[in-house]
Measured scan of single mutants.
Amino acid sequence: NLYFQGLKYMVPGARVTRGLDWKWRDQDGSPQGEGTVTGELHNGWIDVTWDAGGSNSYRMGAEGKFDLKLAP
Results as ranks from 00 to 15, higher is better:
E63L: 08
A14H: 04
S55F: 11
T38A: 08
G53R: 00
N1L: 12
E34Q: 12
L70M: 10
D21T: 04
L20G: 09
G29A: 05
V37I: 14
A71L: 12
G53E: 01
T17P: 02
Y58D: 01
G6I: 15
Y3T: 12
K65L: 03
G54K: 09
G19T: 05
P31D: 09
D26W: 05
L7Q: 10
A62R: 04
T17L: 12
V48P: 00
W50R: 00
G33Q: 08
E34D: 08
R25A: 15
I46C: 04
E34Y: 14
L2V: 14
Q27L: 05
G13V: 03
M60H: 05
S55K: 12
Y58P: 01
V16P: 02
K8S: 12
N56G: 15
A52R: 10
A52V: 08
F66T: 04
F4L: 12
D67R: 00
D28V: 04
K8Y: 10
V11T: 11
F66I: 05
G6H: 15
Y58W: 02
Y3I: 13
W45A: 01
G19W: 05
E40V: 13
K8L: 12
Q27A: 07
N43K: 10
G29Q: 06
D26A: 08
E63W: 09
Q5K: 13
E34L: 15
L2E: 15
F66S: 03
E63G: 12
T17E: 11
P31G: 08
P12C: 14
A62E: 03
T49C: 14
D26C: 11
G29D: 06
H42T: 13
V11E: 09
R18F: 08
H42P: 02
N43G: 11
Y9R: 09
Y3W: 14
K23V: 12
G53C: 07
Y58E: 02
R18C: 07
V16G: 01
D26Y: 07
G64E: 06
G44Q: 02
S57N: 09
D47C: 15
R15L: 02
P12Q: 09
K65G: 05
S30W: 11
S55D: 09
W45M: 06
D47G: 11
K69W: 11
E34N: 11
A62K: 04
N56I: 04
G29N: 05
M60K: 01
P12W: 08
L20P: 15
P12T: 10
K23I: 14
K69S: 11
W50N: 00
V48K: 00
T49R: 11
K8Q: 13
G39L: 03
W24G: 06
L2D: 15
K8I: 14
D21R: 05
D51W: 02
Q27R: 04
K23H: 07
G6A: 14
A71S: 11
A71D: 06
Y3K: 13
S30Q: 14
R25N: 15
L7K: 08
L2Q: 15
P72W: 13
S30R: 12
T38M: 11
W50S: 00
Y9A: 10
G29T: 06
A71H: 08
K69M: 14
Y58K: 00
S30G: 15
Y58M: 03
T49Y: 09
E40N: 12
R59A: 01
A62N: 06
F4V: 11
F66E: 02
A14E: 05
P31Q: 08
G44D: 01
R59K: 01
F66L: 06
Y58L: 01
W22F: 06
K69N: 10
E40F: 14
D28E: 06
G19R: 06
E40H: 13
R59S: 04
S57D: 02
L2C: 15
R15H: 03
G35F: 04
N43R: 10
H42M: 11
D51H: 03
R18M: 08
A52N: 11
Q32H: 13
T36G: 01
G33N: 06
G53I: 01
A52H: 14
D51G: 02
V37R: 02
D28A: 06
G61E: 02
G44S: 01
Y3S: 13
W22N: 03
W50A: 00
D67P: 01
G64W: 08
L41F: 09
A71W: 07
V48A: 00
T38R: 08
A71Q: 09
G39M: 05
K8G: 10
G39N: 09
E34G: 11
M10L: 13
Y9M: 10
K8F: 11
A14F: 05
S57P: 04
G64M: 09
G54Q: 11
L41M: 11
L20Q: 14
L20E: 12
K23E: 12
R59H: 02
S57V: 11
R25Y: 12
S30I: 14
L70P: 09
I46H: 02
G13T: 03
F4I: 12
T38E: 05
G54S: 09
D26I: 05
D67Q: 03
T38F: 07
G61R: 02
A62G: 06
D28C: 06
G64A: 07
Q32M: 13
G53D: 01
G33P: 04
G33I: 04
G54P: 07
G64F: 07
